[in-house]
Design a protein around this nucleic acid. Structure first.
Lengths: 224, 224
DNA sequence: CGTACGATTGAGCGTAGTCAATAGCTGTGG
DNA sequence: CCACAGCTATTGACTACGCTCAATCGTACG
């Protein structure tokens, strides 16, 4: 029960009752690994993710998959400008979503800007960063999206890494094994801590930031 | 003079007079390798590329560069939704640009959709495709954007590959050498033809499409 | 209790990167 | 006119990062 206890401690998006069909607050909870909409299908109305974690992905015909973005609470999914969904959206946790109310122009521009900015940053990551740089970037991004503000204010940030190693791999353009090895290297170097593979603590965020940004002097130091 | 003759034959964006400061049609021609706007600087008004080829890129602090998109005639550059430019825009040829007139909603949505679609497709390419798959995808994309319609209607498509091997590498997340090797493999396999490295003819577009899409059976066949 | 799945770890391999040399072309200046 | 520098492309030899394959462990679940 470590898993569940940890989830609760971190404020994971678990429903009051654990049955996935439970409705809370007259809103629907979606179970983990539920497809919200699928790439290529008719566009779905804009949604706002109230709680949980969603992966947006695209696949090649032979099954190779690339997760384009990981979306945390508050952000929009299904920003579609054409007739069809560009990506598949899949929940990674219990999720609460609601139809996005009409957006003001400024808010809309902000949401579009954030989305494009993130995809473009991810393109640099995929095209030009090494495996440890990618994993460090990912850990920091997820901490930023999913660590509770209260936890962040204290010295050490701990958060739930909703993604499996396989999903991290599909996000970062790596394999499961490489992601796992990078995590272990970071742990041995004292940069992050975890007992359960999903519950991660940032121990040296500054060093992680340096690695994520590609400042190479940190690669060989810190007994990596 | 092969270079210049070929450029002219393909309708490259050369000014009537070769001096870069020449003005034609009361519009400005920008010389190749001119920076139009720079990443992080104050946002520039929307521009339409009338003629030529522009690269949008971002860089890491140590100089590693990722070209996010290659823009051909008719498309917009400087679709900015925030206060600062997300990317650097640099001409790769003589270019003609003009302020984009006010866009209708439908047109705007279309432009945004195309932009996001392209970046997301590029993310799959960077994260999940092999080097030959990337190069094949790039060749087809550039043929689509830069081959003249007249040339396309005939059996064989020939076009000017405005990018150097180095720029291809920065676009595809590879190195100069790997790009060059892929081009040579494709040439030996009879998929593309070129004497000048910039002037490329598609000889077996169907096979290139299959490789670009990642249908693996084509990798070992066709004496690659 | 058995099956399934995720994570980890090791051994070996292969794709793409690094380093280096060369050729070809362009533009410059003596 | 030629020598030279600078740049792009190509090619070869070697390296190494990350992938593949395989085995093991722990936990969840029916």
């Amino acid at each position: 029960m470590l898993q569940l206890a940890s989830l609760a401690a971190l404020g994971c998006a678990l429903p009051a009752k654990s049955h996935p069909d439970t409705r809370v607050d007259s809103r629907e909870f979606l179970a983990p690994r539920t497809v919200i909409f699928r790439e290529g299908f008719d566009a779905v109305p804009q949604l706002r993710l109230t709680d949980g974690c969603v992966a947006l992905s695209r696949s090649l015909s032979d099954g190779r998959r690339q997760i384009i973005d990981i979306v945390g609470p508050g952000r929009l999914i299904g920003l579609v400008f054409g007739e069809h969904n560009r990506t598949t959206a899949e929940t990674l946790t219990y999720c609460q979503i609601e139809p996005a109310r009409e957006l003001g122009l400024a808010e809309f521009r902000g949401a579009v800007n954030e989305m494009v900015l993130r995809v473009e940053s991810h393109a640099i990551l995929l095209g030009r960063k090494t495996a440890p740089e990618r994993v460090a970037s990912a850990i920091l991004d997820l901490a930023d999206q999913f660590a509770r503000p209260r936890a962040k204010r204290k010295g050490t940030t701990t958060f739930n890494l909703y993604l499996t190693r396989g999903e991290m791999a599909d996000w970062l353009g790596l394999t499961v094994e490489t992601v796992s090895r990078c995590f272990q290297r970071f742990r041995r170097a004292g940069l992050v801590g975890f007992t359960d593979p999903q519950i991660v603590t940032l121990l040296q965020p500054t060093v992680l930031q340096a690695i994520a940004a590609g400042r190479r002097q940190f690669d060989n130091s810190n007994n990596l």
